[in-house]
Design a protein around this nucleic acid. Structure first.
Lengths: 219, 219
DNA sequence: GGCTGGATCTCGGAA
DNA sequence: TTCCGAGGTCCAGCC
């Protein structure tokens, strides 16, 4: 990894065109060839960048980064204030816990959260337009399609609506009801869902994760 | 801006929990207090980060970054390989060209792109569920709602469908037809749009921008 | 290779 | 403040 602090201006031409006037910035050149340009604020997003695979050509004070798609980043350097290189070695990688995939696992394990007598058909139930997060049957054996989100917004309701429309054309499954399950459901999404006869279910991640044997406590 | 290269492990607890095993990484501490942790690949995304406003407390070899929401990043340092600070000064800011806003401007200027005799009602036509990109009238004075995207996908068709549903309840406007305009329209989006009686229109950014007087050439 | 959908999305604007 | 939509979205997973 090479760290350069420099007074520079930057022009990008690719999916859009952009221009950065002359100023001091950090240039980050990584081992995979990627380049990013940071100002002294914002943690997440660089001002400009080129994702790998891409190639940096240094021609005196003009640096050009290019990729196969023809996107181009041109950095004009006026003054270099710092330039250092560092060997970092392998990155073991980030371990995450608490994303949507976990919610799906947990709800599948605790399918009774949907209601008494519910049973799991399968996770990632395949359809022509993509997999339904969870297919289940209620106590009477009727099909229920569940869409799971961490944050329930309108897009998720639209997604579930498309699935239901398709699933209800299958005489072996129909009628299929929908459940929109999320840790948090935005009011607009809830309104739209309920307008369409879709049940909303707020999930409590900690409670789902907490105990594998809640049922015991009932006795 | 402070640049630290260090052997460290990192734990984040907030919107999710995550763990980074001990390894060498770049720690970026910016003037606004934000902190990000980069490995030696990927230009765009840090492994972990805390966005401003947040506060860093250095207690010997344990650094803790926290924000008001209670999100917490704990960095355990084993060895510091580099540590430097740099004054960058003000960032003049990025100037962009070629985003959706420009398409909207250009199509409004060249409303005839929609067809002979079309006239502009207004851009950002307000509705209860958000602004319609462009409202126009055709040669016969009938209302036309236009949704503009750089890349036309299913979400955009759904968005326009919601607008049309609402607009058609207004007797002063109804009947309102829809046009889905984009630089590129995905086949699935086109199919869905046409199923719903929405016209698809592919926009040529360069042609729209190119000449203000194409009409002249017809003579 | 393309396509789909999640993301600690981030970021900006408007109500 | 919340809501909403764009983004050079990026990115992983699956086909």
């Amino acid at each position: 990894m090479r760290l350069v602090i420099a007074r520079c201006q930057v022009d990008y031409a690719g999916r859009l065109t952009s221009h950065l006037p002359m100023a001091n910035r950090l240039l980050l050149i990584k081992a995979d060839g990627s380049v990013s340009i940071h100002s002294d604020d914002r943690a997440y997003k660089p001002l400009n960048w080129m994702s790998p695979p891409c190639w940096l050509i240094e021609d005196r004070n003009i640096w050009t980064v290019q990729n196969k798609a023809g996107e181009k980043l041109v950095i004009s350097l006026e003054e270099i204030l710092h330039d250092s290189a560092h060997e970092l070695g392998a990155e073991p990688g980030l371990v995450k816990d608490g994303v949507e995939a976990h919610l799906q696992e947990l709800l599948a394990e605790h399918i009774g959260t949907l209601g008494e007598g519910y049973s799991l058909v399968r996770r990632e139930f395949p359809t022509a337009i993509g997999p339904v997060d969870i297919m289940a049957r209620d106590a009477d054996g009727a099909s229920v399609a569940v869409e799971i989100k961490r944050r329930g917004e309108i897009d998720g309701v639209e997604q579930l609506t498309r699935y239901l429309e398709l699933l209800n054309r299958d005489p072996l499954l129909a009628p299929v009801r929908g459940v929109f399950a999320a840790q948090q459901i935005k009011p607009q999404a809830r309104t739209l869902a309920e307008d369409r006869g879709i049940r909303c279910l707020t999930l409590d991640y900690d409670k789902l994760r907490g105990t594998d044997s809640d049922e015991f406590r009932l006795f």
